[in-house]
Design a protein around this nucleic acid. Structure first.
Lengths: 167, 167
DNA sequence: CGATATAGTTAGCTTTGCTAAATATTATCG
DNA sequence: CGATAATATTTAGCAAAGCTAACTATATCG
């Protein structure tokens, strides 16, 4: 019999984690042949979907060190996917902006992923699709919670105003 | 007005993709300080949760080249997290098996992720939690669909019997 | 048996990751 | 205001992880 007061993790946590892992692992295959490495593609996606960002903010969002992001940005710039501007209020900061070519490339890749995901979605039963759609707002909330806890653990002060957070 | 017959991707695809990305990005932070790189940890997880596998199968599962997986396996072996056996029916094949130490390490890391996820889950409303739990079987189906399509596109023959597929 | 295919490794290169130290700019303190 | 500290990025240098091409060993096929 199960031991009383086992107090393990929430039973929904494990399947949710496992399904999310496998889902992204499979969708990642769609990025092949895009001509940009995973590291650069991921950084570019933050710029395209999150708007311009400084090198430091991008490094934090991507969970890499500052020198690593410096180099990724240099390569992206050389490839014409990103443009850099010096921040007007703080001349130490470098703002990165996705170029039209960068934005197009990223949308191409994203569309491939979403097409693959869509084809799988339409093969589900109506009930299954409904269940997934019904869970989307809850997933959003869940990610928001995790985000706040992670930011809190890092000692960030909550953004009172100013620019929108990246990730 | 929206153009008729736009026929873009399923509207659920984009939020699902976005939430899954952010969820795993945040949970990934929990792996810090585990003392094993992301590449080796991921390969090890396939062995721990999927059972023993050959180098080739592992390379396919992890979407890396054979030489890369050879080297990851050598490092994992040096660290005592994995053990190698020569396949009895095919002497070319190398079977990798997670050691008890490898299994313990991986469970430690996995537990950290699931604990973080659980803490976020319990902060949700009852309705939100219910919605997520109700979507889990559908997510499982969805991933299964993607899996089959990916395997089909690779030209794999469907497994009639024999050992269970890895990923 | 000989040719062909498969599984893994070796060699050698590029990219990505890190820390430590340097540079430039901004903020703070007396 | 000037010295000092803090912040943002870069440079240097190294290790790990990624690749392709070429090699070895074993299986399979005709």
């Amino acid at each position: 019999m199960p031991s009383p007061r086992a107090r393990g993790p929430d039973p929904a946590a494990e399947p949710l984690h496992r399904h999310a892992l496998r889902l992204l692992r499979l969708l990642r295959q769609e990025d092949a042949g895009l001509g940009v490495s995973a590291a650069r593609l991921s950084a570019l996606s933050v710029l395209v979907f999150g708007g311009p960002a400084t090198l430091g903010a991008l490094a934090t969002a991507e969970q890499v060190s500052a020198p690593t992001m410096t180099r990724l940005a240099q390569t992206l710039e050389r490839e014409g996917l990103v443009r850099r501007e010096v921040d007007e209020v703080d001349a130490r900061s470098v703002r990165l902006v996705a170029t039209p070519a960068g934005t197009r490339l990223l949308h191409r890749g994203r569309d491939r992923r979403l097409d693959a995901l869509s084809r799988a979605l339409v093969s589900l039963s109506a009930n299954e699709r409904t269940a997934i759609i019904a869970a989307l707002p809850a997933l959003d909330q869940l990610v928001g919670q995790l985000q706040r806890r992670a930011a809190g653990a890092r000692g960030d002060s909550p953004p009172r105003s100013g620019r929108r957070r990246l990730d």
